[in-house]
Write a protein that binds this DNA or RNA. Structure first.
Length: 829
RNA sequence: GCCCGGGUGGCGGAAUUGGUAGACGCAAGGGACUUAAAAUCCCUCGGUGCUUGUCACUGUGCCGGUUCAAGUCCGGCCCCGGGCACCA
């Protein structure tokens, strides 16, 4: 009957040793989990390993073991490290998604998506490394070369599996405005990524034959200025249009050339526009002009329809292309001020204006004309209003060993046949040899590939691509609600109880891909009837990364901080170059080993420092000096509580209502104000840094408190309340030391079972307030008055204040502004 | 080029709704304790000036505006970080 709280971190899975950057990530989640537990929530905080955590096959090669063994070894290592850091996993589920049972459900979902057309196979051009036998993402190609082997990358026309995320573009975009718990910038990034633009589809009939080319344009108003047509090299018509014309060979050569270039280079903005005439023409539906059809390098198959109507006068790319190939220019929009002439045009005119050379649409503003032209095209069956998205379907095929096998069988008779449900899961064969190239061994495993067709029993071939590991991370948060459920992918009751995730925590690097895929997959599962949620994550915290400067020896490359002494390399003594400060990473060696710090200062200190140094969403530059301060503070806490432990040991914390001496009242007020401040900072904002500084203030106050200055029968009880409050408030941040202090205070039950302290607003309330006195907006004096002093009296007191008089003497008070409980401003002349 | 963030002491950062700018900590300086050091505890700490004060002036990237009052709001610029980008 307690309210639920589902907290989840995207786990950065360390492929090497854990570094201090991880400690910060883990601490943020752990503090929230402990705090929410104390607040009485039923907390689910899975520390599991989703797809990000699975090692790539090359990591397995590096470790000379089978990947599964390596994974489980790492999990054991992680567990021991987490324990040292005080990251509790009492409330966690042990779930590694490399468990084959997870494949079973993921494959079942895949088949259901296939049956609904949401998973489909498509032919497209991809960056392909012949040596590694693998598809490369754009960022895996450096200057046209493969990042792994350094060989040249070419385009390959390949069949790959896709998820139809574009079918959800509209919904994904709409819901961006229904996620108030997400950072604005993440939503903006997602919106840009989806990239909705309104425009029109327009059909151009070919000069010869019946068929048409359809284009997408956001500028239907410029249609009368369209003088030629550009196709992407991948466009199915690109080659066929040249058949039987003298252009057949030049077109073939051009397409071959495009295939040799990698896509990122071809589509870079500074790449020169280039193209070739196909030998065919199409007809402009409004002007009946014969438009030559070109194949051009800058046209993208993935956006719109892969064909562009070219308006050289009002589009810069078309302008450059037309100039290069001597194609006609017709101005159809005139700016209000000047008069454009195609002969003297130096760049395309892309702004608004009045229509010209456009038949019945002349004389009207171009925006308006766009709508009218679209309507006209619709009436003659040559076009319609439409929306296009930048978002592309999600290619999930990977030529890797490690991943969920795609459960499909190819049969010469029956085509693509899903593996029957009773045969799931398709598991990865274990008797394979890891290849140094990183090439997937699956395609080479005849035992895996050869399998009878489930439909006709003739010999078939298994799909050897595996799924992108992002597929697993797109629903692990749902599966974590019911990790051992065996009757289907998800147990709806449990999922409905825990979902949505109340607080998701992860790095900004996942702002687009992972978070968008997870949202998409949740909607897919909803539409397949497997889950019932529209959105997976209510609140998102994008925590910053820990940075540190890099150091490099001219002889020995990157150096660990330990390998540098007084600016010299410890191996060879050369002067060390200080590189830029960047995200801690194993490859740059700018990591700090928490083992050493924990050994020196304890995990509590490291946790405290990481949380105190900056708010969680900000990046943090690591600096060892600050750690001393955190260590010193915990020492201060330890000593002051030890100092009071004897006297408060056998008393109960104060809860009475007696009238107390001033000093005790002040101490108690500060205690309750601190509870309020820390609670607000943790509850609403996760601002650990200000919460910790409030606790520091309370500790300072306790140090200032002179025990012998006051006598009261309640003194020890009030001290006990303060001391216990400090320990309890600090517990989520520094669990070890506070657990020990809790016992020193005479408790036998663990502090982890305690409730979060509550504050009494009456006690926390100030009795006096400082009213600042400003003269003409400048601070001149201040008065201290009881809280309930009426406004009139404050105004009188302020005017009679000695220092006020110095500034108002001989002048006229024109106006007095009173801001309740804060200040008074007198305007004088 | 387009779209988001951000710019505050020597440093990390506070200032939650326009209302005392610089909380808390680091570094620095001083004092107490000690034979000494470390540790600890206490004090000072944006800049300038002097009459050393409950002092004056100045100060939150720059220029201007609104307001009794601006780090916060508005307009224009500069710089830094991030995302997207030959997207038709």
């Amino acid at each position: 009957d307690n309210p639920k709280y589902y907290l989840l971190e995207m786990f950065p899975y360390p492929s090497g040793r854990i570094h201090v950057g991880h400690v910060r990530n883990y601490s943020i989640g752990d503090v929230i989990a402990r705090y929410k537990t104390m607040r009485g929530f039923n907390v689910l905080h899975p520390i599991g390993w989703d797809a990000f955590g699975l090692p790539a096959e090359n990591a397995a090669i590096e470790h000379k073991t089978h990947p599964s063994q390596w994974t489980y070894d790492n999990i054991a290592y992680m567990r021991s490290q987490l324990k040292r850091m005080g990251i509790s996993y009492d409330w966690t589920r042990e779930l590694a998604t490399c468990d084959p049972s997870y494949y079973r459900w993921e494959q079942l979902i895949f088949i259901k998506m296939f049956e609904k057309g949401l998973a489909y196979r498509k032919r497209s051009w991809v960056n392909w490394c012949e040596k590694c036998q693998t598809v490369l993402a754009n960022e895996q190609v450096e200057a046209g070369l493969c990042w792994r082997c350094g060989k040249e990358v070419a385009q390959k026309d390949l069949q790959q599996w896709f998820f139809k995320i574009t079918a959800y573009a509209e919904e994904l975009l709409d819901y961006c405005d229904k996620l108030p718990g997400w950072p604005e910038r993440v939503l903006t990034m997602q919106k840009n990524w989806i990239g909705r633009s309104e425009g029109a589809e327009i059909s151009f009939t070919l000069e010869k034959g019946e068929s048409e080319i359809t284009v997408f344009t956001t500028r239907p108003d410029t249609l009368f200025g369209a003088t030629f047509m550009s196709l992407a090299p991948e466009h199915p018509l690109a080659q066929t249009l040249s058949h039987g014309t003298p252009q057949e060979n030049p077109v073939r050569q051009f397409i071959e050339k495009m295939k040799r270039e990698d896509l990122s280079k071809r589509t870079a903005e500074d790449t020169e526009k280039e193209g070739v005439f196909t030998g065919s023409y199409c007809i402009n539906p409004v002007t009946n002009r014969k438009m030559p059809i070109f194949v051009a390098n800058f046209v993208l198959m993935e956006y719109g329809t892969g064909a562009v109507m070219a308006v050289p006068t009002h589009d810069q790319r078309d302008f450059e292309f037309a100039k290069k190939y001597g194609l006609p220019l017709i101005i159809v929009i005139q700016p209000p001020e000047e008069k454009l002439d195609p002969i003297y045009l130096e760049a395309a005119y892309v702004d608004d204006g009045i229509m010209v050379n456009s038949g019945q649409f002349d004389g009207i503003p171009n925006k308006e004309a766009g709508v009218k032209i679209t309507d006209y095209l619709a009436s003659i069956g040559k076009g319609r209003k439409t929306v296009s998205y930048r978002l592309r379907d999600w290619g999930i095929s990977r030529q890797r060993y490690w991943g969920t096998p795609i459960p499909m069988i190819y049969c010469d008779e029956c085509g693509i046949v899903p593996v029957p449900e009773k045969d799931l899961p398709v598991v990865l064969p274990l008797d394979v040899k890891m290849l140094e190239t990183g090439q997937s061994p699956l395609a080479l495993s005849s035992a895996f590939v050869n399998t009878p067709c489930p439909r006709c029993s003739r010999p078939g071939r298994r799909e050897t691509d595996t799924m992108d590991t992002f597929v697993e991370s797109s629903w692990y948060f749902l599966r974590y609600a019911c990790p051992r459920y065996d009757n289907g992918p998800l147990n709806k009751d449990k999922v409905n109880y825990w979902m949505p995730v109340d607080q998701y925590i992860g790095g900004i690097e996942h702002a687009i891909l992972h978070l968008l895929y997870a949202r998409f997959y949740t909607k897919i599962l909803r539409d397949l009837g497997i889950a019932q949620q529209d959105e997976p994550f209510t609140n998102l915290l994008t925590q910053g990364m820990v940075h540190k400067e890099t150091t490099r020896c001219p002889q020995h490359g990157w150096l660990f901080p330990k390998e540098v002494e007084e600016g010299k390399c410890t191996v060879c003594g050369s002067a060390v170059e200080i590189g830029r400060t960047e995200k801690m990473s194993k490859s740059r060696k700018n990591v700090v080993d928490p083992d050493e710090l924990i050994g020196q200062h304890g995990a509590d200190t490291i946790r405290l420092f990481c949380l105190f140094a900056a708010p969680p969403e900000k990046d943090l530059d690591w600096n060892d000096l600050g750690v001393e301060g955190a260590f010193r503070f915990l020492g201060r806490v330890w000593r002051i509580i030890q100092a009071h432990a004897e006297t408060v040991k056998d008393v109960k914390p104060y809860h009475g209502k007696e009238d107390l001496p001033e000093t005790l009242k002040n101490l108690r007020r500060k205690t309750h104000q601190t509870i309020r401040k820390v609670t607000e900072d943790l509850e609403e904002r996760f601002h650990f840094n200000t919460a910790i500084s409030a606790i520091m203030e309370l500790v300072n106050t306790l140090y200032q408190f002179d025990v012998n200055s006051v006598e009261s029968p309640f003194k020890n009880q009030i001290l006990r309340e303060t001391v216990e409050t400090i320990v309890l408030l600090l517990y989520p941040v520094s669990p070890h030391i506070t657990e020990e202090l809790w016992q020193i205070l005479g408790h036998t039950a663990s502090i982890s079972k305690q409730a979060w302290p509550s504050y009494d607003p009456e006690v926390a309330k100030k009795e006096e307030m400082v009213i600042v006195i400003q003269i003409n907006g400048k601070l001149r004096s201040q008065i201290t008055v009881p809280v309930n002093t009426p406004e009139e009296e404050i105004k009188t007191l302020a005017q009679n204040d000695e220092r006020t008089k110095q500034w108002t003497e001989g002048k006229k008070i024109v106006k007095i502004i009173y801001v309740p409980r804060k200040l008074i401003n007198m305007v004088v002349q």
